[in-house]
Every structure is written in structure tokens, then in C-alpha cells.
Amino acid sequence: MRRLASLGWVFLWVSSMTLGGGMAMLPLLERELVARRRWLTSDELVETIAVVQSLPGLIAINMAVLVGYRVRGVAGALVASVAVTLTPFLLVALIAGTLASLSNSPTLNHVFLGVRAGTAALILLSLARLARAALDGPFAWTVAALAFLAAVVLQVDLTLVVLIGFAAGLALAVARALGRARRS
């Protein structure tokens, strides 16, 4: 029960404090889930993102369901998804209701530009920590570089970029299976 409550709390405040949805939550989630609470290892967080990116729907909810389920089963998935959507729902319903337009204020636009720049830096810092475990050799570096170039330069849909990882994983699995067949 205690764990369920803190799971809800983590997703509630992380989603309330970040602008930009799924990936913007990564630095805060990494700190809460991996560094502080040790509910996931950094490899498990990276695997979760792989699954999240290959599913349809909203990244933030996918992330909440996968993490919530790992930590506390179906109840955890439910609590985390409600928590992750609560603040965005109330805030947008309120703004749409009063028809106020936040985006027309130049001052606020500058504040949010600052937040986006800060978010970019925070994701880079998370990346540096997560990459240490994931990039364990030249093969992994090549896959990472291909995925980055496909996403940024060719602007390939991220779901298709994940296929690069699937192909690399399948190649490794087949190579392993062939190696074993040859030995026996």
C-alpha cells in the first residue's frame, strides 16, 4: 500500500513538473526510480523505453503502465497512469474552460524556451549515465549512431527507428544460436 502510494506520488509530481511529455520526464524518473528508490536498474529503464517507443499511444502513459506494472502489478499500472494524467487533465480543462491563451505572452514564451533548453541538458545528462551500461562495444555504438542519424537526419518515425534495434537484437540472437549449433 505504501509502495502504491509512493508510485502514484512519483508519477504525479514528475508529470506535473515537466513540459513536453514522455521523454521530458526521463531525467526526473531516472532519479526517482533508479537512483533513489532502486525500483529499476538503468538497463531495465532503457528496456522499458524500448518497449514504450514500439507501442501505439501516448509515451507518458505507456511509461507509467510499464513501470507501474513492474513495481506493483496491475494496481501499480493503474495508479501510475491516473497519476501521470491528472495534472495535465485538470490544467488543460481549466485553461480551455476559461479560454485564456498562455502561449501569446512573450515573457512566458521566454520562460518556456528556458525550460526546453534545460530539459535538453537534463536529458543529455541522463543519456550519459544510461549509455555507460548500454554501449558496451563497437557493435552497440554503431547501432546507437544509426538510430540517432535515422531519427535526427532522416526524421524516420521513432517506431521504425526501434526496428533498427530489433534487427540488431535478432542478428545477435541468430549469431548466438548458430555459434552454439556449430560447437555441438
Binding site: 547501432v143 544509426l146 534495434g165 530489433f166 537484437g169 542478428a171 545477435l172
Partner: peptide, 16 residues
């Protein structure tokens, strides 16, 4: 093995 391929791919996606 699949995850060994997917993890570096996700690193690329986070960099993006």
C-alpha cells in the same frame, strides 16, 4: 539477445 540490440538503439533515440 534482443535487448542487447534494443538498448543501444534506445540510447540513439534518447540522443535524438
Amino acid at each position: 539477445q534482443l535487448m542487447r540490440g534494443l538498448r543501444p538503439c534506445v540510447v540513439g533515440i534518447i540522443a535524438a
